[in-house]
C-alpha cells in the first residue's frame, strides 16, 4: 500500500526547486518511479514518510540531449530509451548506450532515468561504470545555489550520494575527448532480462601504436558502488601492450576487488570470472 501523500507536477526547474525547498516536510523527486514507487510499495526505509512527491516528468528542460564544443549535456530526466534512441548519444557515447540497453526490460527503460540510476546509487547501477570512464560531471541545483562536481565524488557509498534533500540533479555533462578513445562495456547478469547485474565493467583507452597511452577502468556490482581504479590506471599508462601485460592487469584488478569487498560467499565464483572477463575486455579494446 502506498501511504497518503501530496503530489505535484512542476513545469519548470525553478518551480521544482521551489517545491523541494518547502520547509518542515519530506519532499522527494519522482522521475521514472522504478526505484521510488517500488521502494514505497515495499515499505523500504529509504522511501518512508514522504510528504510530497514532485513529479519532474512535465519539465521539458530536463529531457534534452545537446552538445557544445566541450561537452555533451544530458538532461537530468532523460530515460534509458530516450538515450538509446538519441543520435548524439549513439555516436559519441557508445559505452553508455550499450549499458543503457542492458538495463531491466523495455517497460523499465521507457521510464527509468540515467540520473535516477546514480542518485539511487545501488551497487548494480548499470550506467555508472560508463559514466565514470567518460569522466562525467553533474550539475546540481537548489533554490538558492548550484554546483558542479565529478560524478565520482558525488557517489559516496551504497545507496549514498552527496545530494541534499533540497537539491535536484539537472544535468550530466560529459567532456568531449580530443583524441580517439576506444572502449567497451561488459555486463554479466543472472537472468537475461531484468537481470540485476552481478558484474559490470567499463574500459576506455587511448592506444598509441603498441602502447597504452591512457586507460580508464571502472566497475559496478562487484564493488560496493561503481568506482574507478586510479592506481591500476596509473600503473598501466605508458606500458607496451602484450598478452602478459593484459593478464597481469586483469590479475591486479581481481586482487583489488577481492580486497575492497573482503571475501564473500560468491567470491570463488566471481573472482575468476571477473579476471577472465576483464582480460577479454582489455584484449578487445587494445586489439
Amino acid at each position: 500500500m502506498i501511504p497518503e501523500l501530496q503530489f505535484s507536477r512542476p513545469k519548470t526547474i525553478r518551480e521544482a526547486l521551489n517545491l523541494l525547498a518547502t520547509p518542515g516536510q519530506n519532499n522527494r523527486i519522482l522521475a521514472g518511479g522504478t526505484d521510488v514507487i517500488t521502494g514505497i510499495q515495499m515499505g523500504s526505509k529509504r522511501f518512508s514518510r514522504i510528504d510530497l512527491l514532485i513529479d519532474i516528468n512535465q519539465i521539458p528542460e530536463l529531457k534534452t540531449i545537446t552538445e557544445n564544443k566541450a561537452h555533451i549535456i544530458i538532461g537530468g530526466n532523460v530515460t534509458f530509451t530516450e538515450l538509446i534512441e538519441n543520435p548524439i548519444a549513439r555516436q559519441k557515447l557508445p559505452l553508455l548506450v550499450k549499458a543503457a540497453s542492458t538495463v531491466g526490460n523495455l517497460q523499465i527503460r521507457n521510464r527509468a532515468t540515467l540520473t535516477g540510476n546514480f542518485v539511487n546509487n545501488a551497487p548494480c547501477a548499470d550506467s555508472v561504470p560508463p559514466l565514470l570512464v567518460y569522466d562525467a560531471l553533474i550539475k546540481i541545483e537548489s533554490q538558492n545555489s548550484g554546483r558542479e562536481l565529478p560524478l565520482q565524488d558525488f557517489l559516496t557509498g551504497t545507496y549514498k550520494t552527496l545530494i541534499k534533500p533540497n537539491e535536484l540533479v539537472t544535468e550530466i555533462r560529459i567532456p568531449k575527448a580530443d583524441t580517439e578513445l576506444r572502449g567497451d562495456f561488459y555486463k554479466l547478469g543472472r537472468r537475461k532480462s531484468v537481470a540485476i547485474s552481478r558484474i559490470s565493467l567499463a574500459v576506455l583507452a587511448q592506444i598509441e601504436e603498441d602502447k597504452i597511452k591512457e586507460i580508464r577502468i571502472a566497475s559496478g556490482a562487484v564493488t560496493p558502488i561503481g568506482e574507478r581504479f586510479p592506481d591500476l590506471e596509473k600503473w598501466a599508462n605508458g606500458q607496451k601492450i602484450s598478452d602478459e601485460l593484459l593478464k597481469l592487469l586483469a590479475k591486479k584488478m581481481a586482487e583489488k576487488i577481492t580486497k575492497a569487498n573482503g571475501l564473500r560467499w560468491s567470491s570463488t565464483y566471481k573472482i575468476p570470472v571477473l579476471q577472465q572477463t576483464f582480460y577479454q575486455l582489455l584484449k578487445k579494446v587494445t586489439d
Binding site: R9, G33, I37, L53, T81, L106, Q107, I108, N110, R111
Partner: peptide, 18 residues
C-alpha cells in the same frame, strides 16, 4: 503493462497523478 503515449509501461509503477 499498458501503453502510455504509445509506449509500453508498467501501470504498477505509475501514480495516478502522473
Amino acid at each position: 503493462t499498458v501503453l502510455l503515449n504509445d509506449q509500453a509501461v508498467n501501470s504498477c509503477l505509475l501514480l495516478i497523478g502522473q
